[in-house]
Design a protein around this nucleic acid. Sequence first.
DNA 1: GCCATTGTTGCAATAATATGCAACATTTCA
DNA 2: TGAAATGTTGCATATTATTGCAACAATGGC
Lengths: 104, 104
Amino acid sequence: MKQLERRYERRAEIFKALANPLRLVMLEKLADKPWCVCALADELGVDKSIVSKYLSQLKSAGLIEDTRKGTLVEYRLVAPCILQVASCAEETIQEQKKKLLSEE
Amino acid sequence: MKQLERRYERRAEIFKALANPLRLVMLEKLADKPWCVCALADELGVDKSIVSKYLSQLKSAGLIEDTRKGTLVEYRLVAPCILQVASCAEETIQEQKKKLLSEE
DNA sequence: GCCATTGTTGCAATAATATGCAACATTTCA
DNA sequence: TGAAATGTTGCATATTATTGCAACAATGGC
């Protein structure tokens, strides 16, 4: 049971990493190409410390990985399927909501 | 841009609902069959108020729906694909982590 | 070595979540 | 109507997340 619990905690960690609008935007940016902290911070108009922390959170969850290149650190998406998964889930739910509304 | 923001917020809401180990267990229980609050609370060994609140959160996210049947309220999973999505994401990440370890 | 660029971490203030108990609401049935 | 069973909501407390700034760390070029 303890092992099962850990399994669900790991899984919840992945969803926690995805449970923030800005982090989702960051992941979509990373789906196009690798980005360094600085450029991504400029692109999104937020402080680099926030971008750095969020990237580190996404990395802990296993969603992205990084490579240092000189003074900058390049981050890239590990599993692009994650985002397809996100939009698929969203579409299913949207359809369901429409269905419920039309039934009322 | 405002509309795009709302889109990401909606998506983040779905992931927020999934970002808790107990709620993930609840969803898996619901994948088998519909459950009422009371039975699910017994099964999981937590207070019914927590189960009720979590179910309501999952419902707001569009993941489940409910029907009152006498004194009890039956909840059921709307999109079982959501859970497949979870295990798919997890597997991809696990594979990636193994790959990284073997490279070191 | 020194400086510029880039990235990370620590801290503090604020906001959001989790948790459990108790009160209240809804439905059924006698 | 009143009691029993089931669900929901309000409140209080503890934990966690968000955010921005400033300090610190790492790398490369002069």
